[in-house]
Every structure is written in C-alpha cells, then in structure tokens.
C-alpha cells in the first residue's frame, strides 16, 4: 500500500511538472493518455469490479461533452460547466443503472451498446440543442488554455485512480467483487447487490461526464459521432482488460501501452491501431484473462490473483 502510494505520488508529480518540459504536441499526447486513464479507471469501477461489462460507457462521455460545450457557449465558466457535466451524467446514470442493471451479463452489455446509439441518435436529431450532425465548434476565445485542460484531466485521472484504490480497500469494494464472483451467493449473505451495483454504476459515470467536457474544450470541436464513439468503448474495455481488470494499476499500464501503440500508428494508419487493439483483446482474454499485471504478480509467488485463478479453475 505504501509503495502504491509513493509510486502514485511520483507519477502525479512527474505529470504535474510535464508542461514545463514538453511542447504542445507532447502535452496533447499526455493529456489524451491521462484522459484514457480517467475513463479506463471509471469503467474499471463498474465493469472491472462487478463484472457487469458496459459496452456503452461512451454515452456518459458524450453527454458530458455536450453538456460542457453547451454550457460554455451559454456563458458559464469552464469549471462550472465541467461540474455540471459530471452531475448530469451521474443523474442520468442513476435511472439507467436501475433499469439496465437488472439484466445479466450479455443482456446488460447489449443494452449499454444500444444506449450509446440512442445517445448518439438524440444528439443527431435534437438539432435545436445540439446543432445535429454539424457538431459544436467552440470558439477559441472561450476555451481554457491547453495547460488548464491538462491539469483538469490530470485531476480527473488521479481522482478516478484514487477512487479505485479507496474502494479496493473497503467493504464496499469487497461486496462489488463478491457480486462479480457470484451475485446470487453475495445476495444470500446479505449484500444489497442492487444498491451496490447502482452506486458503482452512477459513480462510474461521474468522471466520464467531466472528462467529456474537458475533452470538448481540448479538441474545441465535438459532433455526435466523435463523442458517442463506439471506438471509445472498445478502447476503455481493451485497456482495462490488457492491464488487469479490478486492479489498481492494471488500467494505467493498459492505457500506457495502448496509447503508445496508437501514437505511432494513428495518423498514417488510422485503422491499424484498432485492428491491433482487437487482436490484443482476443489474445489477452484467451491467454491472459487477468491481464498483464497478473503475470508480474505471479512471478512473485502465490498472491493477489489467487482468488480469480481458483475461481476460474473451478469454473472450468
């Protein structure tokens, strides 16, 4: 735990000093990296911990992006708009969670996949509010500086990671994992599964909402396709799986690996990095179901993933 903390502090300190030592382009890259950390950790909170795999978390990102952009245009300060974006995404997540978390496994995943499409359709068709397919281009005069966006993203990434760290050490975290391992049994011993799931789900929407707004300020342009983005869902899932779901550092490692590969390929081969992601996803699920982190831990002898490991062996 102490090492976790000190490593975290070192990383945060390095990240906080980054704007001094980088040019705009490099800082942009770090911003995107931190943005993905924030999103991956949020996804980790619901899907990594409870096993309810959401294939549509981009819907909260999209709602946040539109809220943030529209409020900024309406004259609110950027930080207030980010706050509202988080709040509205969360408020939306509560009823959505109550309805969809009754569904199990694939039904939940598909429902979320569908919800993301519904979100995109609404953003496309509600032209009076969202300017439809045109998207919203934010005037540069309104936008916070790149450094401001960077620190905002850093804050969100730290917050999301801290949330995982804190939850992992609490009874609530244990309950969530119990739901993942066996929801029926968890319920039998008195875990209020519905409450836990909905809380985790709503909490997992806070940061994507805020991150969506910050993203809108960073790119200065959003449209329905770019924020209710199916590829974003894929990336969240792939990054967490790659590193190790339900762990503290797994998603961070996954993000760093995937974003580095992406940076090398995206402009020249826009499709290649997604194909690689797909292949990575399959390989990890087939051969490394607990992610890269599990390999590193196994080398240290019996330890952290024993629970999942045993569970798997028994299951098969």
């Amino acid at each position: 735990m102490r090492l976790d903390l000190s490593l975290g502090l070192i990383l945060v300190l390095l990240a906080a000093l980054a704007p001094v030592a980088t040019n705009d382009y490099q800082l942009s890259f770090l911003l995107q990296l931190l943005l993905m950390v924030a999103l991956a950790q949020s996804w980790n909170l619901i899907s990594g911990m409870t096993g309810y795999v959401s294939f549509g978390h981009a819907v909260f990102f999209g709602v946040g992006a539109y809220t943030g952009a529209l409020l900024l245009v309406a004259g609110h300060s950027w930080w207030a708009a980010v706050g509202w974006a988080a709040l509205i995404a969360t408020a939306l997540a509560l009823p959505i969670g109550l309805l969809t978390l009754r569904l199990h496994g694939p039904y939940f995943a598909i429902a979320m996949l569908g919800l993301n499409e519904v979100g995109r359709t609404v953003a496309t068709l509600w032209v009076d509010l969202t300017e439809g397919g045109d998207g919203i281009a934010l005037s540069p005069a309104l936008l916070p500086a790149l450094e401001t966006n960077y620190y905002a993203t850093l804050f969100l990434a730290v917050l999301a990671t801290l949330a995982i760290g804190v939850v992992l050490g609490t009874r609530f975290g244990l309950e969530l994992q119990a739901i993942r391992e066996d929801e029926g049994a968890a319920e039998m011993v008195g875990v209020n599964t519905t409450r836990d799931k909905v809380i985790a789900f709503a909490a997992s929407a806070v940061i994507p909402g805020a991150a969506g707004a910050v993203y809108a300020y960073y790119t200065s342009f959003i449209d329905p396709l770019s924020v209710f983005l199916p590829a974003l869902n894929i990336q969240m899932v792939a990054m967490v799986l790659l590193g190790g779901r339900g762990t503290l550092w797994g998603p961070v490692i996954g993000v760093v690996i995937v974003m580095s590969v992406r940076e090398l390929t995206w402009a020249e081969f826009p499709t290649l990095h997604l194909a690689l992601l797909g292949a990575l996803m399959i390989l990890v699920i087939l051969f490394l179901p607990e992610g890269i982190l599990s390999v590193l831990r196994k080398r240290r002898g019996p330890g952290s993933t024993r629970l999942a490991e045993e569970c798997r062996q028994q299951g098969e």
């Binding site: 096993g51 294939f55 194909a275 992601l277 797909g278």
Partner: peptide, 22 residues
C-alpha cells in the same frame, strides 16, 4: 461465461472491420 464470448467476438469484429478498411 457469455461476457468472454462477447469480448472475443468484439475483438474479432474490430479486426475484420479494420482489415476491411485497410
């Protein structure tokens, strides 16, 4: 479990689509 199959076929679909795009 069904989620595993969902994730693997999702990966497959991304590969096929993007190879198609390439």
């Amino acid at each position: 479990d069904e989620l595993t199959s969902l994730l693997v076929t999702y990966g497959l679909s991304i590969i096929l689509m993007n190879v198609g795009l390439l």
